[in-house]
Amino acid sequence: MVTYIEYGNIFTLEGILNYAHGCNCAGAMGKGIALQFRDKFPVMYQQYKEMCKEGKFSLGDVFTYNHDDKIIFNLGTQKTWKTKADIKAIETALMKMMDYANQNKVYKIALPKIGAGLGGLNWDDVKNVIDKVAGSFPNIDLFVVENYKEN
């Protein structure tokens, strides 16, 4: 099931420890929520940056990072920070994330409005993809914060 939250902060949603966000495949996390992920999880950022440098993180990939009791899903949604997000890559990455979550008993994941902020895609198109993918995994709840607001 998908719950859309008009305003909020994914990191302060009660009872949720697992997070996802869209990433470029060039190793940059310098703006938007990616910058928050970089600051909160610096070791993850270094690993992601190295994977990108080595060509091991591509569109549609998911880099899963375990941090204490949290799982961070880095979704390969755009080639570089200068290019638009790719709707097919979003769908592929979400499907891989949900498969992983299902296999590893992860039942709640919070994510921002992927692909439609700095990624430049139409939010309604991305929402349709999220709803479609989530429909195949009824035991996993996604909480999508559409607009950032500090709590």
Rank of each mutant, 00 (worst) to 15 (best):
D124P: 04
D61E: 12
T3V: 11
A93M: 04
M1P: 14
G135A: 04
E150D: 11
I130C: 05
D131W: 04
L94I: 10
Y48R: 09
L118G: 02
E91N: 10
D131V: 06
L75M: 14
Q36A: 12
A34P: 05
A116Q: 08
S58F: 02
F41K: 02
Y48D: 06
M51P: 03
K127V: 15
A89R: 04
N147R: 11
H21R: 00
T80D: 10
I130E: 03
K149L: 14
E54Q: 15
G120Y: 09
N151I: 13
T64D: 01
P138H: 01
N24H: 03
T80Q: 10
D68G: 00
D131R: 04
G27E: 09
M51F: 11
I109V: 14
A20K: 03
G55F: 00
D125R: 02
S136N: 13
E91S: 14
I130T: 05
A89P: 10
P42S: 07
E91H: 08
D124N: 12
L118R: 06
H21T: 13
T77C: 11
M51L: 15
M1G: 12
A34G: 15
I90V: 13
Q78W: 04
E50G: 07
K53T: 14
F41P: 07
N66E: 14
N18H: 15
